[in-house]
């Protein structure tokens, strides 16, 4: 196992070395037994016939149950660790990642895009929300002991906390075509102060929510989704993270995946009172993945349960929606964005 640079790396390595040790003991034991028996009971005359042994139930049960207990123990150990590393921290800084043949793009919470690079502050829990533009990729940082497939058509997440400043390899781990082995880059973990300085040094980009608002207007979303509930579509204010009642009786949590799906395939899960059929046209093929990420950021900025998400340096995020409230029906309902 290589360099450890994330909060879970040490725990993964302990499990690895424990299993390696156990395996070495088992393999060595069997090899020694085979060697010893081969010499001790070697055939001494051509017509030798050994005493026929049938087996012994006690022995069989012993070597059924000991491996069973050992297996159950390792399973539990690994599964509990897995649950812990899959669950994102509540105060995680969220970074959007898109994979395509054959490069990575990552967007900082404050809006800067990076190609084949990702900068994160040390000690800050990070959650990557990832999607692919074409085929399946996989975001893999060996030093963090973390990897996750990146699928087209949905978001998958990967959580980590870097513990050591440095630059680490980033690999695509799922075969994705000709230049798969060139789909590599680096993740740079920086001390929080250096990270802030680095952010300043980058071209101070427009915030994702602000970009999202521009798309929201240019695609004409604001015609139907107004700040009050008076539009053709439901209002999006305060929506994020809420449970929505669907026309077919089910409920759905409004998260990134649901928003994405509703933009690309509005007929799939229609909100009660707005169809079916929904009157919204599909935007599949018109809105690209980066625009989708911006739109989601904008809708999040309109408020909802998980408003506090995205710690880090994204203080501009909720503000964006509040200050630049769209002209179409600002009305009195400014209850959306919470501080």
């Amino acid at each position: 196992m290589g360099e450890q640079a994330s909060s879970i790396a040490g725990q993964i390595d302990i499990l690895f070395w424990f299993m390696t040790l156990a395996s070495a003991v088992i393999t060595g034991g069997i090899a020694l037994a085979l060697l010893f028996f081969s010499i001790r009971y070697r055939r001494r005359s051509e017509n030798e016939v050994p005493v026929q042994t049938e087996g012994a139930l006690k022995l069989e049960l012993t070597w059924t149950f000991i491996p069973l207990i050992l297996s159950a123990f390792i399973f539990l150990w690994a599964a509990l660790l897995f649950v812990r590393m899959s669950r994102p921290e509540p105060n995680a800084m969220e970074i959007y990642v898109t994979g395509r043949q054959w490069m990575w793009k990552a967007q900082q919470p404050s809006g800067q895009w990076e190609n084949n690079e990702l900068h994160v502050p040390v000690g800050q829990p990070v959650q990557l929300n990832m999607t692919s533009i074409d085929v399946i990729h996989d975001f893999y940082i060996p030093a963090f002991r973390q990897k996750q497939d990146v699928l087209p058509g949905r978001y998958t997440t990967l959580a980590f906390t870097a513990t050591k400043a440095g630059t680490y390899n980033l690999f695509c781990a799922e075969y994705c075509g000709t230049q798969h082995s060139r789909m590599v880059g680096s993740v740079t973990a920086m001390e929080p102060r250096d990270y802030q300085a680095w952010l300043q040094g980058e071209n101070n980009a427009e915030s994702p929510a602000a970009r999202g608002l521009r798309h929201f207007e240019s695609y004409g979303c604001d015609t139907c989704h107004r700040q009050d509930n008076g539009g053709v579509g439901p209002t999006l204010v305060g929506l994020y993270g809420q449970q929505e009642q669907l026309a077919d009786g089910r409920t759905v949590t409004v998260d990134d995946s649901y928003i994405r799906e509703s933009i690309l395939n509005p007929q799939k899960q229609v909100v009660q009172g707005y169809g079916p059929p929904s009157r919204m046209p599909t935007y599949a093929g018109r809105v690209n993945e980066t625009e989708l990420i911006d739109l989601i950021a904008y809708i999040r900025s309109l408020g909802g349960q998980q408003q506090e998400q995205g710690g880090g340096g994204d203080d501009s995020l909720p503000g964006a929606g509040a200050e630049e409230t769209p002209g179409t029906g600002p009305n009195s309902s400014t209850d959306g964005p919470k501080p």
């Binding site: 196992m1 879970i8 725990q11 993964i12 499990l15 690895f16 299993m19 395996s23 088992i26 393999t27 069997i30 090899a31 085979l34 081969s38 297996s71 390792i74 399973f75 150990w77 690994a78 599964a79 660790l81 897995f82 590393m85 996989d138 893999y140 060996p142 002991r145 973390q146 990897k147 996750q148 781990a173 799922e174």
Partner: peptide, 28 residues
């Protein structure tokens, strides 16, 4: 005898890959 030795190694390393948290690092 060679089979047994190699199969034991192959089988045990399979358990590394069945162990969820470890498979995250080792898969692919």
């Amino acid at each position: 005898l060679g089979f047994i030795g190699l199969f034991v190694v192959g089988g045990l390393t399979g358990l590394f890959l069945a162990a969820l948290a470890l498979d995250v690092h080792l898969s692919d």
